[in-house]
């Protein structure tokens, strides 16, 4: 049996600030299998973002073990970590983080620049990802010409262009109105259901979290609860083209 996609055992992250040690994450354990849609939910300062950084290999925990596909961050060199982030992980941020003055197509292609995929396939792959989020009509636009919801869909296309195993979405609806937020959640649910991507959603809203199959609630660096969503919300709002 293959190891779980994510296996977290008792991890702790302690920040040293002026000699004062603060535990942002304090003895957290859970497992996420491939194909799951999990929400990590908690108020601000609960440690959910720190947890995301650790899971995304963007930061190191101070204690405990974290295995991604059976391997810890220490099993990889810095170059290999960059490779893992490029091939197996996709990131969607609250602030979109699209490159300004660069077209939608170029933005979506960005992860491919750092991959070993041949350039001849880039356009096809990027167009496929753009089609999944329904942004084909905006390919040549620059981010400044897009609405917030559209920007986030472009960011989702960028996250999935390399067909990663896992997509992290950090407050993806935080900067959006409810309708745009619905469209983004619809896109994430579609990616999970139709394309088999594992999704880890970070949010502070119960409503948003209920679009996942499972919610891990964190508070003060500890897990408060970890349970299946009984009445899962399905985002129905389709893309408006």
């Amino acid at each position: 049996m293959p190891p779980p996609l994510i296996e977290v055992r008792n991890i702790t992250k302690i920040y040293q600030d002026d000699g004062v040690a603060t535990a942002a994450v304090n003895g957290v354990s859970f497992t996420i299998e491939s194909g799951e849609f999990v929400a990590i939910m908690g108020p601000s300062g609960s440690g959910k973002s720190t947890l995301l950084h650790i899971l995304g290999f963007l930061d190191r925990h101070t204690d405990g073990t974290y295995r991604f596909e059976g391997k810890t961050i220490d099993d990889y060199s810095r170059l290999e970590i960059a490779r893992v982030r490029n091939k197996k992980m996709g990131f969607v941020f609250q602030a979109f983080n699209l490159l300004p003055r660069v077209s939608v197509l170029e933005n979506v292609k960005l992860p491919l620049l750092y991959s070993d995929i041949a350039e001849s396939q880039w356009d096809t792959m990027a167009m496929k990802a753009i089609a999944i989020v329904g942004m084909e009509h905006r390919v040549a636009h620059e981010p400044a010409q897009l609405s917030g919801g559209e920007k986030q869909r472009v960011a989702i296309a960028r996250a999935l262009v390399n067909d990663p195993e896992l997509i992290f979405a950090d407050e993806p609806t935080g900067n959006l109105d409810s309708k745009s937020g619905q469209m983004v959640m619809n896109a994430l649910q579609k990616l999970n259901a139709d394309h088999g991507h594992t999704i880890i959603l970070i949010t502070h809203e119960t409503q948003t979290a209920e679009h996942a199959q499972r919610i891990i609630r964190v508070r003060d660096g500890k897990i408060e609860s970890d349970e299946r969503v009984t009445s899962r919300r399905i985002a129905t709002t389709q893309f408006v083209k």
Binding site: L79, A82, R85, N86, F91, Y114
Partner: peptide
């Protein structure tokens, strides 16, 4: 932000 993003999506140092 751009640098951070590039690193997050797989750019090496």
């Amino acid at each position: 932000r751009e640098i951070g993003l590039r690193k997050a999506i797989g750019a090496t140092e």
